[in-house]
Design a binder for these strands. Structure first.
Lengths: 213, 213
DNA sequence: TTGACAACATACCCGGTAGTATGTTCATCA
DNA sequence: TGATGAACATACTACCGGGTATGTTGTCAA
């Protein structure tokens, strides 16, 4: 079950800042977003943000952290589901895609933060904080990776190279952060329908037989 | 057949600048890349770059343009191939993926440029130049979109929503720009093998029967 | 030989932005 | 009720980076 941002902020006042920051970073990216932009979108000034966060990078990292925490929490119940790995994967994948859609801002920050870390675009001080976040993201990714490896051993998936298959799966499941935009009058069922199409594409891509479910 | 960057630069001297700019923009992104960075990676100074390009945005746009021109040229021979749409798509998709791998720097700029245009992060002056580039990219995308639509009519593909399927296909075929990195001692065959795995994933995702080819 | 221009390098300006130092207001509690 | 500190706003500084203005060097043509 998805929780609100407030549940992951260290206090209530930070929640608003986090959401505003997530929106700004998503729309313009890290470097093109100024602290004044975030403050303006809150109807406030820099003072408010610097009172809660020591630097722009720390604010960004906190959005990253909350995004990952929400992801871990969302798949918690599906992680240890008994039965076939394929069924567990379907549940995990669907939950993940819905999460990409409904918490899109935070997930784009997770994406950008990961890219920043991987290309080493961080100062030494921030590097350790980013390393921790990246480990959290790796643990999350490994859950999926191990699940599809198991599903392959059980004969329910057919792909040749695990690493490549894993990359293709993730890029597919993550892709709504790039192309999804909320439509007026859209219901939860509409989102579920989109999510299933994404999961179906990934499932077939991974070599699941009769992938239309 | 892929041509070198020099073929697309308006003169020889610009080619080096374009390649250096593509590398820098790819590694750090548009905003985090300074003109001095590009100049330094050339062993030169700003003067050289501003002698050939009026602004940073124009340089970026030219990298974008060259990237798209290379893509159009690469699929030229496969565009009007006779026979089934599915076979045409396989050729197009494979060519595209190889292109993403071997011209990775330029393609990441195309990606970022498209995102910048779509979220309107451009000044009014640049907007018209970017609009032209975006149209070029749309024409390119439509070739694939029409091909999979035709393949579906011919009963060789099975997906529910064309727009979503198209997005998922493209994000899959483009994904090497995010996760591929050249390995020491890698041959053209190795790259072809990776490309086929990507195409196979996309083909199965689009509902091609017996997608292992 | 010289003048003219391309192809740069150097030196400088200036706006924007991260970060800081210093108010100001309000609630809480001894 | 006065003192204290949290939660901000305001005012300021320092620096970085895009862009420009001005040298400098080599080449080539007349």
């Amino acid at each position: 079950m998805a929780l609100s941002v407030g549940e992951y902020a260290s206090d209530g006042s930070r929640a608003d800042i986090l959401e505003a920051a997530a929106r700004c970073f998503t729309e313009r990216g890290y470097y093109a977003t100024s602290i004044d932009d975030v403050a303006r979108s809150l109807g406030a000034t820099k003072g408010r943000i610097y009172h809660h966060y020591p630097s722009k990078a720390d604010l960004f990292a906190d959005v990253f952290r909350v995004g990952m925490d929400m992801n871990h929490a969302a798949i918690e119940s599906a992680r240890a589901l008994p039965g076939k790995a394929l069924d567990r994967w379907k549940k995990l994948a669907f939950t993940h895609v819905v999460q990409m859609i409904v918490t899109r801002s935070f997930q784009k920050v997770v994406w950008e933060g990961t890219e920043m870390y991987l290309r080493g675009a961080t100062t030494p001080e921030q590097r350790s904080a980013f390393a921790e976040l990246h480990k959290s993201r790796s643990r999350y990714g490994d859950i999926f990776r191990q699940t599809i490896a198991e599903a392959k051993r059980e004969g329910d998936m057919h792909f040749s190279n695990l690493s490549i298959a894993n990359q293709l799966m993730f890029v597919t499941l993550n892709s709504p952060i790039f192309w999804y935009s909320p439509q007026p009058g859209e219901t939860r069922d509409d989102i579920d329908d989109i999510a299933w199409q994404v999961v179906a594409f990934a499932a077939r891509g991974l070599g699941v037989n009769g992938g239309d479910f």
